[in-house]
């Protein structure tokens, strides 16, 4: 009788949660990416040799740096927004504005970083 609980990853991602839900998803992706990134980073330095060189080359590639910098910076700034709202619940009324501010802080810093990484990569 009746269907099971009607929710899974796909149904969840279909939910139109808009901006705030997007930051939540990016925060998980960023957090997980940093954990994997740092683990591989440390293990490859530990084992060294060809594997170490392979991963270091990979990590130093500009495309990877642009990706991981997105993860780390977004996670950090979004994390600070969450911490600030947790400490001062009164501000939660302005959560929409908080997310605008967050993007306003994130985008210029990220743009400058992408510019510097790209220039270094292209200019050698």
């Amino acid at each position: 009788m009746g269907l099971k609980r009607n929710v899974g990853l796909i149904e969840g991602l279909r939910y139109q949660g808009k901006g705030p839900m997007l930051t939540y998803i990016l925060h998980r992706i960023g957090g997980l990416a940093i954990v994997i990134f740092v683990a591989v980073h440390i293990l490859s330095s530990y084992f060294g040799g060809n594997i170490g060189i392979f991963f270091n080359t990979f990590y130093m590639h500009w495309a990877f740096q642009i990706f991981i910098f997105f993860c780390a910076l977004f996670h950090a700034i979004n994390g600070l927004r969450i911490v600030i709202l947790d400490l001062w619940p009164k501000l939660i009324e302005h959560q929409r504005e908080a997310i605008w501010v967050e993007w306003a802080v994130f985008l210029p810093i990220y743009a400058i970083a992408v510019f510097v990484i790209a220039r270094t990569a292209l200019g050698g």
Binding site: M1, G2, L3, K4, R5, N6, V7, E11, G12, Y15
Partner: peptide, 10 residues
């Protein structure tokens, strides 16, 4: 569609 996370009866 029905709301998520509960069992659909009908």
């Amino acid at each position: 569609e029905p709301i998520l996370g509960l069992k659909v009866i009908k």
